[in-house]
Design a protein around this nucleic acid. Structure first.
Lengths: 193, 193
DNA sequence: CTCTTACACTAGCGCTTGCTTGGTTACTCA
DNA sequence: TGAGTAACCAAGCAAGCGCTAGTGTAAGAG
């Protein structure tokens, strides 16, 4: 809804605190302090605490969707390249916008029903892009299996990386993406690295 | 620690509430009511709320580890069969003991440092079993890639199923396990179902 | 018949929570 | 210059929180 620069900055700070402490344990007083204001002033920017959570998740999901669309537009028609590009884009967003995405993945249940209904459309649109790319790979015979199962296994493997991946380590997100694609498409990998 | 039958039953009820409401939003009064006692009486069985969470997670992880060990013991030495058996066992525990495992996966951060240190040993032991099985499959040339990456991708894909799998649907957990194994090992699947 | 143990109760303390209210400040634009 | 507005603050309310203290009761052990 409202997208003032101030509100965007506050949303970013909130995302960080939600990741550090969890949504429920983050008090409006903590949020206010991190933002350099008093707790009462928070409610000038957000109707209630729920709306802050919704703003964080909406921001993250919206970005991910935009990046995925751009990635697919500027991607060649080759199914393997598109699959790899999607995996790379997914991990790239996941780790540049990490806080927002961790919140989206692990605090989703804290949303009230209205917010959930609204945001699940965004999420479904994102997953639909994945199912399309998986479909292309299936049609091309690169991978095998049920389109939904494969999509969900792949997304699960990718999303779970936020639980163990250390950006300071030797591996880049692109390395992870390539390894995953190689794992489900070993025929292409036989002679490679 | 203490494992009276009464306490086990209370732990089971707590797991259910923690899944429904989340740990932080589950009050000791809600827990007590679900158990048919008053909130004060709760603290006869558990030192504090934290200990209930730890009990839930310990119970679930302990079971998973026991089942995985039993599975591997009664499994033939064939790497493919062992991999499939582990995947099936993982999903089976995940969905028979679903509440405890959902709590373990998504409320881990709420544990205090001592409990985390204690329970991460259990979890690491479980993951080590997986790395072994993955290693065997790598050595046999069934799959390719980095042992840790493959283990984590596979565990991620499996754990993520709790987010979307519907036990009332047409597919059994064994179906899921077989599909996943087929996905990362397509050579074996070419002529099959 | 007493002592112990397990389990439960009532009552409430001290604190924190999300949020409201009524008023103040600083900036923008006619 | 003065009206309008966005951003903030001080103060605090009502509700709910985890947890404690002190007591009661029933069953089994000696």
């Amino acid at each position: 809804m409202n997208a003032s620069p101030r509100r965007k900055e506050l949303t970013r700070l909130a995302a960080q605190l939600f990741v550090q402490e969890g949504f429920d344990k983050t008090t409006v007083r903590m949020l206010a302090q991190a933002m350099g204001i008093k707790s009462g002033s928070l409610f000038h920017h957000f109707k209630d605490k729920q709306e802050i959570l919704a703003a964080v998740i909406e921001e993250g999901t919206h970005n991910a969707l935009a990046i995925a669309r751009r990635t697919l537009e500027s991607s060649p028609p080759d199914p393997e390249a598109r699959l790899r590009a999607m995996a790379r884009a997914h991990l790239e967003t996941l780790f540049t916008d990490r806080n927002a995405h961790v919140v989206a993945l692990f605090e989703w249940r804290r949303l009230d029903d209205d917010a959930k209904a609204h945001l699940s459309h965004l999420r479904d649109a994102y997953e639909a892009l994945w199912v399309d790319v998986i479909d292309e790979a299936l049609d091309a015979g690169l991978i095998h299996g049920d389109r939904f199962l494969v999509s969900r296994f792949v997304l699960g493997a990718l999303n779970w990386t936020v639980r163990w991946y250390d950006p300071a380590g030797p591996r880049t997100p692109d390395d992870l993406a390539d390894e995953l694609v190689a794992m489900i498409m070993p025929l292409k990998r036989q002679g490679g690295l």
